[in-house]
Nucleic acid binder design. Structure first.
Length: 458
RNA sequence: GUGAUUGUAGUUCAGUUGGUUAGAACGCCUGAUUGUGGUUCAGGAGGUCGCGGGUUCGAGUCCCGUCUUUCACCCCA
């Protein structure tokens, strides 16, 4: 048993059936991205640790997978390093790490290629990322992200287009019950000002972000535990009970942050985003202003998005994004504003599987299996195989002349809908036996008629 | 990172207070049917009980470690 292979924690294989479905998801998203003018980018799995560290906060740094240097990596270390612990030792033995998301590598790319890039720059990127997190349901250590970002423009049209992209993608997937929660970081900042809690932004955001998960009472308890005054909490209570439509809720929010210039600016921008989305053809039915939406990543500065599917056992977000003012600032290029969206492929997969939304045609397999009788006949049957393929039919021949029972059973298990029997009888008459494995019907047909049937059946 | 939890055939799971040769279902293979699958029937193969150590006359069962699974927290896609 000791030689039984296993997978590392939090990683998965994707078999043929899963790959068919994943490819369907990724292709759909790619097509929509391209339709909105985004172009593909790929970056290496490995980045220098200096690129990655410090971008995700202390917690994030701990979740980075670091790669041990090659060669005698101990040579550069001293006893003093060991005594100081991991943080001192690590930089000396590991210079590279696996990418943690696609946004930071993208920022690095923009900075390195700033003179070649034409701004505004729209790119999409579909690649795996790695996090040394504890795996859970819908959480893996290796998973795919599927990002589209526009950088080099402040235009709110980009935000509006993101709403359209989300609607189009989830529409194509047939996910009907989902919400695009939107909020604006400046509204949240206004909120902080309004309750006089400057300096405790993150405490506030973390707490209210949990509203839909733990409920109003517990959020209030948590705010108390985090040291917010009762008076301040009282001012927040109205936001826990927002029930109106978007424009009503925005008005309520505007009232709460009326003394904050920042907050007012956020309200105005968000209204404009929604108006633009509407003129781009959105019915806004899925869009919901959610004042408690905060999103973890601290680099967001403007509009933020998060999509959740209802009626699925996965309640966590399946897509998210927002505007950031200064993504490339950490790499020395300031003034590049951007807005992006990220699809959680693995979770979308789980949701679609849950709800049985994968279409039949996402499974493309062999259409016809040629039965193999014996070596002598094989030389006469193989040309037929080529002719079928030339006509665009996905065909394969069983490679060995084993019992027909076994060959038919192979077709059955591989879900191949047709079997083409070409034995000595068929070769003599020139008519081949085409069997439909779903209905059990079998017909003797000349090659052209076989091709016609196979072509029309797909 | 904190606290729990799981691991027995290819898969899903039984397995009594520690006691002969560790079971079932499904799947797989063979045959009934040497030119026809999916149904049926008969038979068969398949396990170092996650791994390592310990307690014991004796361990799938108890103890320790380790890896893995799932879950809550933290955080997040």
């Amino acid at each position: 048993m000791s030689n039984k292979p296993t997978l590392p924690k939090g990683t998965r294989d994707f078999g043929p059936q899963q790959m068919a479905k994943r490819t369907y998801i990724l292709d759909t998203i790619r097509t929509v991205f391209q339709k909105f003018g985004f172009q593909p980018l790929e970056t290496p799995s490995l980045e220098n640790l200096s690129v990655l560290t410090g971008k995700y906060g202390d917690e994030g740094d701990q979740l980075l997978f670091k790669i041990l240097d090659n060669g005698d990596f101990l040579a550069k270390t001293t006893h003093a390093d060991y005594e100081q612990g991991v943080s001192a030792l690590l930089p000396k033995i590991a210079g590279k790490g696996l990418r943690y998301d696609l946004t930071v590598p993208f920022a690095r790319y923009v900075v390195m290629n700033q003179h070649e890039i034409t701004f505004p720059f729209k790119r999409y990127q579909v690649q795996p990322v790695w996090r040394a997190d504890r795996p859970q349901k819908g959480r893996y250590r290796e998973f795919y992200q599927c990002d589209a970002d526009v950088v080099g423009t402040d235009s709110l049209l980009c935000e509006a287009e993101i709403i359209r992209i989300l609607e189009e993608v989830f529409g194509k997937f047939g996910i009907e019950k989902y919400t695009i929660n939107v909020n604006h970081r400046q509204i949240l900042n206004g909120l902080v000002e309004a309750i006089g809690a400057q300096g405790k932004e993150s405490d506030l955001l973390v707490a209210i972000d949990k509203l839909d998960k733990i409920g109003k009472e517990k959020v209030i308890t948590e705010l108390q535990e985090r040291g917010f005054a009762d008076e301040a909490i009282q001012k927040l209570v109205p936001i826990f009970d927002l029930k109106g439509n978007n424009s009503e809720n925005l008005s309520t929010a505007q009232e709460i942050v009326r003394d904050s210039e920042t907050g007012q600016r956020g309200i105005t921008e968000l209204r404009e985003v929604l108006a633009l989305a509407k003129s781009l053809g959105s019915d806004l039915n899925h869009v919901q202003f959610d004042l408690t939406l905060a999103r973890g990543l601290s680099y967001y500065t403007g509009t933020i998005f998060e999509v959740k599917a209802q009626e699925a056992t996965i309640s966590s977000s399946i897509s998210g994004g927002g505007r950031y003012d200064n993504l490339t600032g950490v790499f020395g290029l300031s003034g590049v504003s951007g807005v992006g969206i990220s699809f959680g492929v693995d979770r979308i997969y789980d949701v679609m599987e849950d709800m049985g939304l994968f279409p039949e045609e996402s499974q493309i397999g062999t259409q016809v299996l040629l039965i193999n009788f014996d070596k002598e006949l094989q030389s006469q049957v193989v040309p037929v195989l080529s002719q079928l393929r030339e006509r665009g039919i996905r065909a394969e021949m069983y490679p060995e002349a084993v019992k027909l029972k076994k060959q038919f059973s192979y077709a059955d298990k591989k879900n191949i809908p047709h079997a083409l029997v070409i034995g000595s009888n068929e070769l003599a008459s020139g008519e081949f036996s085409l069997k439909n494995l779903k209905t059990g019907e079998q017909h003797s047909l000349p090659l052209e008629a076989v091709i016609e049937r196979l072509t029309s059946s797909n």
